[in-house]
Design a protein around this nucleic acid. Sequence first.
DNA 1: CTGAAAGCGCTTACAG
DNA 2: CTGAAAGCGCTTACAG
Lengths: 339, 339
Amino acid sequence: MAGVSKQTASRVVNGSAQVTDETRARVLQCIEVLGFRPSTLARQLTAGRSLTLGVVNNTAVGHLMCGDAYVGMVRQADGMGYALLNKEMSDFSRASVDAMLDQMIERQVDGIILAGPEIGHSHDWLDDYPLDTLPMPLIAINARPRAGVEVVGFDNFLAGQNATRHLLSLQRRRIGHLSGPRNRWVSQRRVEGWLSALDEAGLPECKAYCVEGSWEAESGGPGLRRLLELCPDLDAVFVSSDRMALGVLMEAQRLGIKVPGQLAVMGIDNDTQSAFFDPPLTTMTQDTPDMAEVALRQLIRRICDRHDEPYPPGCAPEESSMLTHRLIARESTVGATAA
Amino acid sequence: MAGVSKQTASRVVNGSAQVTDETRARVLQCIEVLGFRPSTLARQLTAGRSLTLGVVNNTAVGHLMCGDAYVGMVRQADGMGYALLNKEMSDFSRASVDAMLDQMIERQVDGIILAGPEIGHSHDWLDDYPLDTLPMPLIAINARPRAGVEVVGFDNFLAGQNATRHLLSLQRRRIGHLSGPRNRWVSQRRVEGWLSALDEAGLPECKAYCVEGSWEAESGGPGLRRLLELCPDLDAVFVSSDRMALGVLMEAQRLGIKVPGQLAVMGIDNDTQSAFFDPPLTTMTQDTPDMAEVALRQLIRRICDRHDEPYPPGCAPEESSMLTHRLIARESTVGATAA
DNA sequence: CTGAAAGCGCTTACAG
DNA sequence: CTGAAAGCGCTTACAG
């Protein structure tokens, strides 16, 4: 070492108190001159922690971990000194899952976030995989509840319920639902929420007015037509994504159906475009950046648990892992200016 | 070691030929039994390479590195054994840039992708930063050309030119342009391409019909109104994003302007929704997953260059770093069924 | 308050 | 074909 020793240098870098001011100054100067940067790699080796978190995505069109949500996660991780190792998977066969887990283990990831989304049987390996054998904790986002698996996510049942209640509060009584794909956990829960609100309101006859969509705009038009076949005087439709709601609005326009006059339409997602649909779309926002951050903090707490360490600042208290959508009422249901 | 030695084990793991079949078998068995996984960390330490690439995003609404593009990048990296370290930045002050670079150095990243987008002066630090001092190569995506900086990206000039040529080929003669924010390099190039196609066609009077938008749907309506003030009998508008084009279409409908009969409208981006606008939107697609992959391969080539290594399979020949948009003609300009 | 030793889990020469 | 040694750049006890 250029001046003193070596473990002294280490002490200075790590801000240990056991150093004379004079020595510290000398070392710091050398560090400055040499442009020295501690090697995270070596540090990780000795510490037995990689300061890296694995993020497993289920690659699908418009998946959740895009955009805002992902940015939130990166930010949160970055702020706590963690890097993220992304893995894109579309096939969740046992072999793929094992390969993924192998990679996570080899890279010595400190924890894993199964970001999802859960599609069909994609997450079923969680049922019989011995998660407790994994050298690191795992947290799933928006997944179906399973014994032994910690999940952070939105309460989609409540979302469906509240969306429907909103339509009910506007005196709608023939409320249909255009759902997302039925093999998606979130879709199912929203359907169940819608059904439960119908029960609450004593409108069991509406339960038949349910059509499955694809999440995408293209399924909106056909979806609305199918719903109208099921119930010609439908007066409201709760659509499970803003993109499909766009399709619904356009089809309504084509059919000469006034929104919200004859038909109230609402979506879920709060896409940036939704406020500029014609009419502006009532929707429910999921604060996905929030969710990503909550998931990350939860994971970090579990990591600390394993190492018997206290939670770092920012992860201080345990927080709820069940998040809530927020209603954004716009003209497609409340019809302020439009008719 | 459970059986033989240690560097022998290393040889087996790395598939060196210098081992008896018998010994190899024995070692492999032990590996199996113990569930042994080589530590990438330690390997990285000795190799002096982290097998990690830094990705710097300029955090902005709807930025390029979302969705498809990012998935393409992760896939490509994953396939070559590289992990990605993401960094989200919104402030590109000298201090932030230095902090980012410090982090990249400390994590011993093997190369950096400046994913952009370039907004205003965000990338100006490249002008005077001594890039050659960096211990790793850097590649910028869709950035303004700069001496000493390697860039991979789309030819937005050509995109503007070809979009305009498409409209010209449909006998449009009063072609306006709704651009993205002027402080964005891609916007500027598209404007220039549009201008150049107008020159080609001998329509200099159109050059005045240019309005600046925000990229978002909300600027489409006002944009169209401004353009109509500039040229009441406008017969075509080249819009620099599909989202703004949605705004334009809706405003046209509101104003009773027939698309494409009276006004041909085209966008850029090929958003999933665009095919379901009313009418379906002609647009230009950027194959961003492609771009991300090209950028990644380019970076890996540069890394190999520094280490005097041959390019790995898949990165074999040098490839062009200037990509081209592809026109997708739909009814908003060619008006197959609509009128 | 500071230094000499041993080790994190691998790998690369160098000897047998 | 296989093993003993030294080192990657740090850190954690243990001595002075």
